[in-house]
């Protein structure tokens, strides 16, 4: 089955992960800009990072037949540095011209401070002015509900195209207000700290899968890109069809990411081969 991994921090992973992902059906990954584990001091560090994910990483993925796309942003954890944020934002539009950059992300909130909210607004504003998609990170654990509420409040005060905004890391307590407000949402599967494959399937069964993306993030921390395949397996073992699986794990990413024409992978439909089914019918008659 063909799978798209819409949120994947490839630079933190090995070539073996690419190889195993390719062997298990992954045809494309999309890599948002991420926190490096420490707060970066210089705009140039971001620019080189953006070059890495928009120029070099696609070549590494291509060795395994995987398409690689990316997003650019200042991570919410670094948004307290207002000068840094402003300078990086001013240089982001040049990356919007790169053939595999899909938009602005992951922006969002970590502690939901005023500076973080200002940075989120500036990122979304820039994206809307340049007709870019937006990927928004919501906080983890204890800050989840408050941070998600603040994200929705910031967005509600702006003139945005909600179809082009994906609010990520939603869980049972935050999914409904995000969907009700008209945004796309993402489930992020982590071994311990975020959503599990089983819980993700529970939510798919409860809410349906319109405007829902499933990803495993997979970064330099405790994480596993194959939680996405675990989720596919869990979805299938509960009796959902192959086509429904493709709709969730391949076609939905195509539908959201494909709003940027650079993402040219099309939704797919599984149908019996016409000639074989016709001849089978003839034999049966």
């Amino acid at each position: 089955m063909q799978i798209i991994q819409p949120h994947y921090h490839a630079i933190a992973r090995t070539a073996q992960d690419y190889e195993r992902m390719a062997m298990s059906g992954v045809v494309a990954v999309a890599e948002p800009a991420f926190w490096a584990g420490f707060d970066r001091k210089y705009p140039e560090t971001f620019i080189d990072y953006f070059r890495q994910i928009s120029e070099f990483e696609p070549t590494r993925a291509a060795q395994y037949g995987i398409r690689h796309f990316s997003w650019v942003a200042v991570n919410p954890k670094e948004a307290e540095n207002k000068t840094l944020t402003r300078e990086v934002l001013s240089q982001m539009p040049e990356f919007f011209q790169k053939p595999t950059v899909l938009g602005v992300g992951e922006t969002g909130l970590h502690k939901s401070t005023k500076n973080e909210c200002d940075a989120l607004e500036a990122h979304v504003d820039l994206a809307m002015k340049h007709q870019q998609l937006v990927l928004i990170h919501t906080p983890h654990l204890a800050d989840k509900v408050h941070g998600t509420k603040r994200v929705l409040e910031v967005l509600a005060g702006m003139n945005v195209d909600r179809d082009r905004i994906w609010i990520d890391h939603v869980e049972e307590q935050t999914i409904r207000p995000c969907l009700d407000a008209g945004y796309w949402v993402g489930f992020t599967l982590y071994p311990i700290t975020k959503c599990s494959p089983k819980r993700a399937v529970d939510m798919l069964e409860k809410y349906g899968w319109d405007r829902i993306l499933v990803n495993s993030s997979a970064d330099w921390g405790p994480s596993d890109p194959f939680t996405l395949q675990e989720c596919v397996l869990e979805f299938r073992r509960r009796g959902h069809s192959l086509q429904e699986s493709i709709d969730v794990f391949h076609n939905n990413p195509c539908r959201f990411l494909g709003q940027n024409p650079k993402f040219d992978i099309q939704p797919i439909r599984v149908e019996p081969c016409a000639r074989e089914s016709a001849s089978r019918s003839a034999v049966e008659k």
Binding site: P191, I192, T193, S196, K198, R199, D202
Partner: peptide
């Protein structure tokens, strides 16, 4: 994590 799995 384990308690959330039980709740689910």
């Amino acid at each position: 994590y384990m308690l959330l799995e039980i709740a689910a």
